[in-house]
Design a protein around this nucleic acid. Sequence first.
DNA 1: TAACATACATACAGTATGTATGTAAACTGT
DNA 2: ACAGTTTACATACATACTGTATGTATGTTA
Lengths: 197, 197
Amino acid sequence: MRRGKEETTETIRQLVDIARTHFTEYGYADTALESIVQAANLTRGALYHHFRNKKELFRSVLEGVQREVADKVEQAASTSEDVWQQLYLGCRAFVMAAVEERNKRIMLVDGPAILGWEEWRAMDQRHSMRLLRAQLQTMQEQGCLRQAPLEVTTYFISGGLNEMALWLARESLNEHALDEAMNALSMFLEGFKQSSA
Amino acid sequence: MRRGKEETTETIRQLVDIARTHFTEYGYADTALESIVQAANLTRGALYHHFRNKKELFRSVLEGVQREVADKVEQAASTSEDVWQQLYLGCRAFVMAAVEERNKRIMLVDGPAILGWEEWRAMDQRHSMRLLRAQLQTMQEQGCLRQAPLEVTTYFISGGLNEMALWLARESLNEHALDEAMNALSMFLEGFKQSSA
DNA sequence: TAACATACATACAGTATGTATGTAAACTGT
DNA sequence: ACAGTTTACATACATACTGTATGTATGTTA
């Protein structure tokens, strides 16, 4: 019955993976743990051996999602030397990742409600938001960003991007929407520029 | 047993009212309908007579919250003649209302997760967001707002304000935070100004 | 006042989470 | 290498909550 050490981590990976697809498709509340373990040819006993409860399983899933998204953001930003380009490219990458079906709901809709906003934000801090904050700080230190309080600014932009992504996800029928959104995005960021540089 | 017509609407009002406090305190998921009806000296039978299910009860609660918040926004904005002041005052009123314990979680955290983002947004459209959008449109038509696509802009600002409110709610220990947030807010809005007016 | 609708209560069914316990396989030290 | 321990699961059960079906008394109306 018991699998080797590698097979064990594989079991966990599989559970998280399947959970992610179910949470994506049905949402957290309407996903029965039973349906997850069935898809993995296991029983709930196995799941409860590896995770304390449903919430912790969700936490694991969300961690994975956040890591993926943050990776994309970081990678996108790193393709430029210009701080403004970096900011724009990072935001753009974030929105494009957040729009994806397998990230959107878990990360932006269910996340805060299940974990509570504080914990959700704390996790976000460790991933994408950390990058945004760091970038804004750098820019502020270089004097090319309006001297707004760093904290609030980060939250405002982050929240704005989140909603923008959700809107875009719904609107994404028309190919035009992405351009429009990115267009607007660069305009917003312009607004943060320090005129007397 | 059956109460007169007035007493009936009073029953409903009471249920929604109590539900709101419970949803506020424990969140949607951790609120048992039983505890609500107990507080109202009723049984779940009564509740299910007036509401199709738990979700619909929540919908009713949220409607009330949204109405209240939108009222405050509208009222605050109407105290000025200047469109920029109107926008600022409206946003400020929204943030201050959203921060309140009895609005915050229901409106900003649980709302999207329970009803789904689309339905939540649709409801928001009928309340606060409608005002924001209308205001932005007016300003755009007057040529004092950057010519960004109206839709995305509205979503971006709205999302930004939401997160700002949630951040502020957590930070509200220090009296300084509100000033800081409002300070930042007016700076953001500055960013949307049309320079070549 | 008889017929009906409404406002509730009661009882029950279904389903989900979580917990306690059992068991076989893999690892551990000697 | 093998006895003991731990690990990875399965099974069985307790608990809790939503939702539904049904019963009943009271108000309303023809």
